[in-house]
Computed example of a mutant assay.
Amino acid sequence: MKIQKEIIDFEEGKSFKLFSPSLKNCFFWHYHPEIELVYVEACNGIRHVGKNISDFKDSDLLLIGSNVPHLNFDYRIQTECRQLVLQMRENFLQELIFPVPEFDSIKKLLERSYLGLSFSGETKAKVVEKLHDIRDKNSFDSFMGLVEILQILAHSNEVKELNNEDTRIKWFLNDKIRMGTIYDYIHENYDKNPNVNVIAENVNLSTPAFCRYFKKQTNMTFTDFVNNYRINQAKLLLLQNSCVTEVCFQVGFESLSYFNKLFKKYIGETPSAFKKKHLSKVEG
C-alpha cells in the first residue's frame, strides 16, 4: 500500500507514449517524473491527485505534473471503464519546450501542472478526439498532434486546479503512505458500519490524530468521505436498474429518507430521478 515510483519505458526515438492501461483491482498509489495526460471514461469514479480526492461523472481529462502522487483512475470501478494515458519523457519540458519561444504558453501550462489540472467542455472533447487521432499517426505527425493538444490545453478557460499547494513527492513521502490502508478499509466496510476508531488503530494513530490527518488530506471528515463513497456506489447500482430501496440498504444506509436526502445533496437530484434519467438515455 505504500507509495511507489513508477518506472516508465519509452520506445527509442519517441518523446512520449500513448496507451490504455487497466488496473481496476489494483491500488496503484504512485508517482513518476514524467508529466502525464489522462483521459478516463466511466459512469463515475474517484480521482485522487496530490491532496485532492473527488469524484467525476462520465469522463475526466487531467494533466498531472512531474512527481505528483496519484491513484490509478480505474481503481475499484466495477462498470465499463476506458482510459487513454499519454506520458511525456522526463526531459520533455526542459529540452523540447523551454528553448522554443513560440511554446511559451505550453511552458506555462506544464509548469503549473503540478497542481493537477482537470479540463472540461469543448476543451475535453477536442483533446480526446486528437488523442484518438494521433494513435494512428507516424512519429512526426503524432508529435505535432501532441503539440496541438498542449496548445489547446494552454489556452483553455475550461480548467480546474485540483490542488492549491505543491503536492509533489518530496512533500508526501513521510505523510500519504497511510491512504492505501484507509481506502481499502472503506471499500471493504462502506456497506457495514466503518468505525473511525478501528481504522485509526490500523494506521497507528489515536482517533483525534486520525481525524485531523484525514481532514487535512481530503478536506472531508471521515463520515463525509464514507457517505460520498456510499453515494458513488449507489449510483453504480442504480445504473444497473436496482430498486432504490434495495440500493439504500446495500450501500449501508439504515434510513431511506436519509439516503434520499443525502443523495440529493451530493448529486443534485433524488435517486429515483437519477435512475430514470440515466436509464432512459441507455434505452433511447
Score class of each variant (00 low, 15 high):
Gln94Phe: 00
Asn72Glu: 10
Leu84Phe: 10
Lys108Phe: 09
Leu62Asn: 05
Met88Pro: 06
Phe92Glu: 01
Ile106Phe: 02
Asp60Lys: 02
Leu110Pro: 07
Ile77Lys: 06
Leu84Tyr: 04
Arg76Ser: 12
Ser66Val: 08
Lys107Cys: 14
Leu110Trp: 03
Ile106Asn: 01
Leu115Trp: 14
Asn67Tyr: 06
Ile106Arg: 00
Ser59Met: 07
Leu71Arg: 06
Asp74Phe: 04
Tyr75Ala: 09
Asn67Arg: 01
Ile64His: 00
Ile106Ser: 03
Val68Asp: 13
Ile64Gln: 04
Glu80Met: 11
Asp55Pro: 01
Cys81Asn: 11
Asp74Ala: 11
Leu61Tyr: 01
Leu61His: 07
Glu102Gly: 15
Cys81Val: 15
Ser113Gly: 08
Arg82Glu: 09
Glu95Asn: 14
Pro69Gln: 10
Lys57Tyr: 11
Asp55Leu: 02
Arg82Met: 10
Glu95Phe: 02
Glu80Phe: 12
Leu117Glu: 06
Asp60Gly: 10
Glu111Phe: 00
Ser105Trp: 00
Leu61Lys: 04
Cys81His: 03
Leu93Phe: 11
Asn67Glu: 08
Glu102His: 13
Ile64Gly: 00
Ile77Val: 14
Gly65Cys: 11
Ile97Leu: 07
Asn91Cys: 14
Leu115Thr: 07
Arg76Leu: 13
Val68Leu: 14
Ile97His: 10
Val85Ile: 15
Leu63Phe: 06
Met88Arg: 02
Val68Lys: 01
Lys107Trp: 00
Gln94Trp: 00
Tyr114Phe: 15
Asp104Leu: 11
Pro101Asp: 10
Gly116Phe: 08
Leu117Lys: 02
Lys108Tyr: 12
Phe98Gln: 05
Leu115Ile: 12
His70Gln: 09
Gln78Glu: 14
Ile53His: 06
Tyr114Asp: 06
Val85Leu: 02
Leu117Ala: 05
Leu84His: 05
Glu95His: 06
Gln87Asn: 07
Gln83Gly: 09
Glu90Val: 12
Leu93His: 07
Pro99Phe: 14
Val100Trp: 04
Lys57Gly: 04
Phe73Ser: 01
Gln94His: 08
His70Pro: 03
Lys57Asn: 08
Asp104Val: 14
Ser113Lys: 01
Asp60Arg: 05
Asn67Leu: 11
Val68Ala: 10
Ser113Trp: 05
Asp58Asn: 15
Pro99Val: 13
Phe56Val: 08
Ile106Met: 05
Glu111Asn: 06
Val68Pro: 10
Leu96His: 09
Phe98Tyr: 07
Leu109Ile: 12
Gln83Met: 15
Met88Trp: 00
Ile64Ser: 10
Ile77Thr: 10
Lys57Gln: 10
Leu109Gly: 05
Ile106Lys: 08
Ile97Tyr: 08
Leu93Asp: 03
Lys57Pro: 00
Asp58Ile: 08
Leu109Cys: 12
Leu86Glu: 02
Asp60Trp: 01
Ile106Val: 15
His70Glu: 03
Asp104Met: 13
His70Met: 04
Lys108Asn: 13
Leu117Thr: 11
Val100Lys: 03
Phe98Ser: 12
Asn91His: 14
Lys108Asp: 11
Pro99Glu: 12
Phe73Ala: 06
Asp55Lys: 09
Gly116Val: 05
Ile97Val: 15
Lys107Met: 11
Leu86Lys: 06
Phe56Cys: 03
Leu62Ser: 09
Ser54Tyr: 07
Leu93Ala: 12
Leu96Gln: 09
Glu111Pro: 02
Glu102Cys: 13
Ser105Pro: 00
Ser54Ile: 01
Thr79Ala: 08
Asn72Trp: 05
Val85Ala: 15
Gln87Glu: 15
Leu61Thr: 09
Gly65Val: 11
Glu95Gln: 15
Leu96Thr: 12
